[in-house]
């Protein structure tokens, strides 16, 4: 359980996190979604007591992180996989962390095997690939068998197999009743992993809601229609509360009418249908809509930097759309 109340971080004139209030509950994967520079990492650093909030507070299990006696046994975090001393072996790196929190030595071997680094345990980590470094960071997060886990952009640098592995791991950790808080700017990744969403843009929390509710509230479903008599059908469908948008490939998007109604209209007038499909909105659409609004909100600010760095829809790397995409 993580709770932030009015959490604020200012660096001079720049407000990185602006009165953020949200909760992260156990038993499910909570996605922390926002464009790069939205304040995700700063928020996570404040949760971990690395950065001091300018105002507000954030607690883990009701306590501020800096007051935890054995933090690694309550919170496991992966912020940046490069935050290790490369001169130390993977085993020794984890051993240093384990000792500081009175975690038994055998647990080091356990987590190394768990993340698949058992064979390179005695190698110095400066020779690790980004993916191996990421696994070492995850091993460190799991070291204390904590009830709360946080991952900042965990799929960065992982190959498709690694991405699948971490997705499965996060879901399993959540099923075990743990609090899993994972940040990403990749919407497709969030769509596959998270059940709950905290959305941040320009330091402000834009939504703290279930994945389905978020999409439902911020994007509307439509019906895709194909017919050889589309012009006629379109004339019949037009009306108040309806919006018709032709697709480039000759299909028609119908907003504001359910598929059943459209089918009935076609049947009543003897028009042939080649396709009639309800299209659920995607997380991308919902997100673009939401961040689009924040961009407008800030448009009047003089000297404001590029509009929220909103992620263009095409920017999702191929790895993120791996098995089971579209779920």
């Amino acid at each position: 359980m993580i709770e932030a109340r009015g959490l604020t971080k200012r660096y001079g004139d720049t407000t990185a996190v602006d009165r953020a209030t949200f909760g992260v509950a156990p038993g499910r994967v909570t996605g922390f979604l926002g464009p790069n520079g939205a304040g995700k990492t700063t928020t996570m650093r404040m949760i971990l007591g690395l950065d001091r909030p300018t105002a507000g507070e954030v607690t883990v299990h009701g306590r501020r992180y800096r007051t935890l006696g054995a933090p690694l046994r309550e919170v496991g975090a992966l912020l940046d996989a490069r935050n290790v001393h490369g001169g130390r072996t993977a085993y020794n790196h984890l051993l240093c962390l384990a000792k500081s929190n009175a975690i038994p030595r055998r647990r080091v071997d356990e987590v190394l095997d768990l993340v698949g680094l058992g064979s390179v345990a005695k190698k110095r980590s400066k020779g690790f690939s980004l993916g191996m470094g990421q696994r070492l960071g995850i091993a460190a997060a799991l070291l204390g068998d904590p009830a709360v886990l946080m991952f900042d952009e965990p799929v960065n640098g992982l190959d498709p197999e690694g991405i699948l592995w971490i997705r499965t791991l996060m879901r399993r950790l959540a099923r075990e009743g743990r609090t899993v808080f994972v940040s990403s700017h990749l919407m497709s990744e969030m769509a596959l992993t998270a059940e709950h969403l905290v959305v941040i843009g320009r330091g402000r929390i834009l939504a703290d809601t279930g994945m389905a509710e978020f999409i439902g509230a911020n994007a509307t479903s439509h019906v895709l229609v194909r017919s050889p008599q589309l012009t006629e059908l379109a004339r019949l469908l037009a009306g108040p509360g309806r919006r018709l948008e032709p697709e480039p490939d000759g299909a028609l998007r119908v907003y504001g009418a359910p598929a059943a109604r459209i089918g009935d209209v076609a049947a009543e007038h003897g028009l042939r249908l080649h396709e009639l499909a309800t299209v659920q909105p995607s997380l991308e659409e919902a997100f673009m809509r939401l961040t689009g609004e924040t961009v407008e909100y800030h448009a009047g600010v003089p000297g404001a930097p590029d509009p929220g760095g909103a992620v263009p829809p095409g920017s999702v790397p191929p790895g993120a759309a791996a098995p089971g995409a579209g779920g």
Binding site: M1, P26, G27, G177, H196
Partner: peptide, 9 residues
């Protein structure tokens, strides 16, 4: 903020 879910802490 959601209340304590199943298996809190």
């Amino acid at each position: 903020a959601p209340g304590a879910g199943p298996g809190a802490a």
